[in-house]
Design a protein around this nucleic acid. Sequence first.
DNA 1: AGATTTTTGTACCATTTCGAAAGAAATTCC
DNA 2: GGAATTTCTTTCGAAATGGTACAAAAATCT
Lengths: 243, 243
Amino acid sequence: MVQKSGRSDPSKGLAGGKSSKAAAKAAESGKAAVAPPPGAPPRKRGRPRAFEPEVALKKALAAFRKSGFSATSLDDLSAAMGINRPSLYGTFGDKRELFLKAYQRYRAETNALFAPALDPKLTLRQMLEMVYATAINIYLSGDHGPSGCFTVMTAASEAMSDPEIRAIVQKAIENSDRTIAGRFRAAMEQGELPPKTDCDALARIVSASIQSIAIRSRAHVPRAELEAMARSTIDLVAGPARR
Amino acid sequence: MVQKSGRSDPSKGLAGGKSSKAAAKAAESGKAAVAPPPGAPPRKRGRPRAFEPEVALKKALAAFRKSGFSATSLDDLSAAMGINRPSLYGTFGDKRELFLKAYQRYRAETNALFAPALDPKLTLRQMLEMVYATAINIYLSGDHGPSGCFTVMTAASEAMSDPEIRAIVQKAIENSDRTIAGRFRAAMEQGELPPKTDCDALARIVSASIQSIAIRSRAHVPRAELEAMARSTIDLVAGPARR
DNA sequence: AGATTTTTGTACCATTTCGAAAGAAATTCC
DNA sequence: GGAATTTCTTTCGAAATGGTACAAAAATCT
């Protein structure tokens, strides 16, 4: 007999009252709640959104990452994102669409985080060290324990039944392999590696070890062990450390 | 207005009639439906089971493997196992217990499949070849597409929220690392590897590549690529093939 | 100010899901 | 053959789930 009306959360009332005030203040005090882009405030016609889609999507991503697609209910999502179901549906579509959008956001976000490590001016070893450090930071992040890699853990689970998700997972894995292999080839051409090195094979090893780190992080393997694994893999594929 | 009574499946009637006949026949014709163990038929007192718990558990394992814990409903399980919910509940407990039992069965089953590869009489290279071949066969098996590794894909997803499952996943990963490392050390002591090889590091690489193969199999990476990945990893950790 | 448009908040619906109760069926023990 | 026991089948029910309808609210345009 637990009625839905039994919510004792006062935030809705506050939010309703605050949103109008916040928007009004935004125009004068400059502290916008919706963060209008620096130069272009062509506001739309109707009632303004009470949330920023970007941060809501970020919350959704965290929720999906925590429990996976099926175990994350729309109630969970709506609570985590701080918006109610109709708004969610209106902005992001149904649950699956939201999942896809969250996944795309994850890919863009992580690609951006890995970008500095792929600077061609770095040595192979420096690049690998940065890649592993970035990966470990991503996989160990999360307010509710290490959340692993979305591609490897969350999306790959759905890849079985959803061809579209599967295609994205394929692309993500392939992209990882290809990017790292390219970096290995560059290193080989610059004499950092012996001339006939099998760069594709080494790249797959690096990819695999990163995936394994994602899995292990989810099993709560301590950070030090993950870092040790990264170091030993680097030594194996890039030659032992010079001293 | 779809009533539950609308099942047009006649199997229940047949099953009911058949089970009595089958059991009766079993006693005389020797073709038992319940497969009494070779030497010990101390049948229990009440109505006999109409299913073999072992094969039902196998079906449950396949169902969980296909869709994961949350996305597999008790209806799915009951349909896949061929037994109805109350029997399922009475035999295996609730959904989570069934999941744990299925996972334990998976571990036992795969351990048995890997056992021949770990024969100490094999060379390191032979052992690795057998291990990868076994893994690929396991991960690509499944009536509904490649199902990957239960530990890596299915259980690791639940590991986030369920400490007991997490502990099993930890143990599974650690066991894999340790077993392979032991085999590497033996090879090193017998001169198959240079004296100061970092066996733990190599073992983790092998573990990681196997996990990556599981992930890739689920993304429908073709078998040939998985095998190529196995070969190149073997060459890397056990030295290139002798000819 | 009033019309228009977009979003929000509440309530609701149909279905699914997990779990359990109750009686029928099948077997062994006496 | 009858009592006891175990399992099977049917059915139910409470809660959760994904999704939606509808009116109030908050903004812009005229």
